[in-house]
Design a protein around this nucleic acid. Structure first.
Length: 265
DNA sequence: ATGGTTGCATGGCAA
């Protein structure tokens, strides 16, 4: 293909409620493959027809009632779709598919982990760390000499400039040392952080702004929770990486915005 | 230090 494929990841926080925003995204930017997290719908109620009408003819989805749920919406064919169970948990947080050139694409929704960063006091934090450990083991077993992509809401902002205040967030779930060290250890298994290929670690990058803030845009207390990583064989195909900040200001938005890469596959 | 908002489902939990 002459123009780069646009691969996008977006925690949509209810796919049914956000259908108009998915349409708006496709009218704002070219989107060839869209990986969603937090679809919050069981498969029987997944809005497949609406999404096909937007041009996403190839769909892979795994959801459950009310919580979690991941999907891959694609304008190019998907093969060998797999639903995964991570660390024995039965929640729907990992789905994968193969693109026509053999690239394997993995879409993850890592648990948010609750409010208290203590595994004794907070079972959700324990769940998050166990999931991260299982994801790391899974990653170790992958062949990094093959073309592989992982995307998703990892719910961890690993670097100091991935949050609005490193100091103030050191004890806040998503930026505690056990999480950031864990995600960096996972990345060390051959993964290229696409957005940091274009923006140095000294510059701020965010993909999420809380619903709870007064004025998300003015206060700008963001975090980079969403990521797109590639193995080395895909590095030379990486043409651009973008974050659609404006989507946080759309009507009835998700608290996450779409992030994307252009790949000359 | 606390509370702030949103979605699902319709009470309270998860984020």
């Amino acid at each position: 293909m002459s123009n780069p494929i646009q691969l996008v990841s977006w925690n949509i926080n209810s796919v049914r409620l956000r259908l108009p925003l998915i349409k708006k995204l496709t009218e704002t930017r070219r989107v060839d493959v869209l990986c969603l997290q937090e679809t919050k719908v069981m498969d029987e109620l997944f809005p497949a027809d609406d999404l096909r009408a937007m041009g996403f003819e190839h769909l892979a989805f795994a959801g459950q009632k009310s919580y979690n749920g991941v999907a891959i919406l694609s304008k190019i064919p998907l093969k060998n779709i797999e639903n995964w169970q991570v660390a024995g948990f039965d929640d729907k947080r990992h789905i994968s598919a193969e693109l026509p050139n053999g690239t394997r694409l993995h879409n993850f929704y890592v648990p948010a982990g609750g409010d208290i960063p203590d595994i004794e006091l907070n079972p959700k934090f324990d769940h998050k760390l166990k999931f991260l450990a299982a994801m790391t083991d899974w990653s170790k077993a992958l062949d990094a000499t093959q073309k592989q992509i992982i995307v998703g809401d990892f719910n961890i902002a690993p670097h100091e400039q991935d949050v609005w205040s490193h100091k103030q967030l050191l004890k806040v779930v998503s930026h505690t040392p056990i999480e950031t060290d864990g995600l960096k250890a996972l990345q060390a298994h051959g993964w290229i952080d696409t957005h940091r290929e274009f923006t140095p670690l000294t510059e701020k990058l965010y993909s999420w702004w809380s619903y709870r803030g007064q004025d998300w845009d003015a206060s700008d207390r963001g975090r980079r929770l969403d990521h797109i990583w590639l193995t080395a064989p895909l590095k030379d195909t990486l043409k651009e990486a973008w974050i659609l900040r404006e989507a946080r200001g759309w009507e009835q938005p998700s608290d996450h915005v779409p992030i994307g890469v252009g790949l000359g596959l």
